[in-house]
Design a protein around this nucleic acid. Structure first.
Lengths: 229, 229
DNA sequence: GGCCGGTATATTGTTAACAAAAGCGGAGGA
DNA sequence: TCCTCCGCTTTTGTTAACAATATACCGGCC
C-alpha cells in the first residue's frame, strides 16, 4: 500500500515522519514525550528542516501536538478526544459503506467474502479474540473505504483517523477482544454491501462502530488494572 | 478565542498561509497557477522556509497540490473531486446535526432561530438568491458544527472542507441561487435540532446538502468549455 | 524532418548559522 | 519562608547559502 510512498514533500522529511509515526504507534514513544527538534535531527542524521516538516505532518495527522514557540510532544488522547474520534469514524465509515453498496459489483463482493473467510480462520485460531483490533480489522474497513470510490474518505481514514485510533490503543493495551462478534457484524455489513443496500450497510456499519466504541469506553472507565499487566 | 490565530507553527508561516488562502479563495490566483517558492518569498518579504511551511499547510487543506521536486500549484478541482467533497460533507454535517440535536438546550435553539431570522432578511433583500452560498450559509452550518460539541468535525469543516468548497466556487462564479429553498430547509433542520430529534436532523441535513450538490452539479454540466483540464 | 541525447538553467530539497522567544534558576527583598 | 525580578540557557523560528533534481533548450544524428 504505502510502504514508502505518499510523500507529500521531499524524501528526508517523509522518512523521518514515517519512522516517527511507526515509533509512536508502536508505543515506543509514550504520549506526552517531548519531541525536540535537535534531538530528532541528530538521531535521524538530518538537519532540522526535514524534522520540522515531519513534525508538522504528524501534527496534522493528529498524533503529535505542537504548541508554538514551545515544541512538539506525542499527543495525549483523553476520553473526550476518543469519543469525538469515534463519532467522526461512525459518520465517515457509514458513508463509505453506503457508497460501496451503491457501486457494488460482483468482484467487490468476492473480495469481501474472501477477506472475511480469512478473518474467520484467524479468529478461530485466536479464540481469545484480542485480534480484530489490529491490521486485520483495519483491512476490512479499509477495503470498504476503497470500494466506496471516494478518495477523500480513504485519505482521511488512512492519514488521520486510523493513526489516531492506534494512538488510543497505545495506552490501553489489552484491547477489547470482541473478535467473534465483530466478525459477525462484518459479515452482515458485507452482505448488505453485496446486495447493494446502502441504507442497511450504513446503518449496520454505524452500529458496528458504536459497539466498538462502547467496548473501548468500558475499558477507558476502568483503566487501572492493565497498567501493570 | 482564536480570532486570528490557530497558528500551527510560527507567525510568518501563518501570515503567508492566510494571505495565500485568501488570494486563492478570492479567485485572484486562478486554479493551476504556479506557486514558486522564491516568487512568494520575495513577495511576502520572508525567506523560503516559512513559504514552504505555508504551502504544506495549504496542500493539507486541499487547495494546493504539491508534486515533489516540481512545485506547488493552485489546485484544480474536477467534477469527481467535487462529488467526493459533497459526499464527505453530507456525512459529516449530517453527523454534526445529529450530535447537535442530542445536546440541544434552550440557548442553542435560540441561537439558531435568531440566525435564521437574520438570514431571512438578507434573502428577501436579495431576491435573486445569489446569496446563501457565501458566508451566510457557512454561518448556519458552522453554528451547527459548533453545537455538535465535536471539535474534530468543526476542525475538518473549517480547515479543509469549506476552503475546498470555496475553491470550487472560484471557477463557477454564478452560484446556484436557491437561497429561498435553502432557507426553508435550514428552518426545518433547526427545528429538528431544537426538538432534540437527531435522526430527523441528520436526515434533513443530508437531503439539504444533496440538494445543494445537485444544484451545483447541474451547473458543472452546463458550462462545458472551461472545465477541461 | 523528426527523434534523441547532452548541457544549461531554473526550481526544489537540505543544511548550518543566526535571531528571538520561552522556560529555568538563583539572588535579592519583603 | 515565599515572592519577584533578572539573567542565563535551551529551544524554536528564520535566514541565506549549498546540493540535487527536474525541466527546457539546442545541436547532432538517424
Amino acid at each position: 500500500m504505502l510502504t514508502k510512498a505518499e510523500e507529500i514533500r521531499g524524501v528526508a522529511a517523509e522518512r523521518v515522519a514515517l519512522a516517527l509515526q511507526e515509533e509512536i504507534l508502536a508505543g515506543r514513544l509514550a504520549p506526552g514525550s517531548r519531541l525536540g527538534e535537535v534531538a530528532l535531527a541528530e538521531r535521524f542524521e538530518v538537519s532540522r528542516g526535514p524534522v520540522r516538516s515531519a513534525l508538522n505532518q504528524l501534527a496534522d495527522a493528529g498524533i503529535v501536538t505542537i504548541v508554538p514557540n514551545s515544541g512538539a510532544r506525542v499527543r495525549e488522547m483523553g476520553r473526550e478526544d476518543a469519543r469525538a474520534l469515534y463519532e467522526v469514524r461512525a459518520a465517515l465509515e457509514a458513508e463509505a459503506a453506503r457508497l460501496a453498496a451503491g457501486q457494488a459489483d460482483a468482484r467487490s463482493g468476492e473480495t469481501l467474502t474472501q477477506l472475511l473467510g480469512q478473518h474467520a480462520q484467524e479468529v478461530s485460531s485466536h479464540p481469545q479474540g484480542a485480534y480484530l483490533q489490529g491490521p486485520g480489522d483495519r483491512d476490512f474497513h479499509m477495503v470498504i473505504a476503497r470500494l466506496s470510490g471516494n478518495p477523500l474518505i480513504l485519505r482521511y481514514l488512512t492519514r488521520e483517523l486510523y493513526p489516531q485510533l492506534s494512538l488510543l490503543r497505545v495506552k490501553h493495551r489489552n484491547v477489547t477482544g470482541r473478535g467473534q462478534a465483530a466478525l459477525l457484524e462484518h459479515r452482515r455489513i458485507a452482505e448488505a454491501i453485496a446486495c447493494g443496500d446502502g441504507e442497511v450497510a450504513a446503518l449496520l456499519m454505524r452500529r458496528h462502530i458504536r459497539a466498538s466504541w462502547e467496548a473501548l469506553e468500558a475499558q477507558l472507565a476502568a483503566p487501572s488494572e492493565e497498567s501493570e499487566a
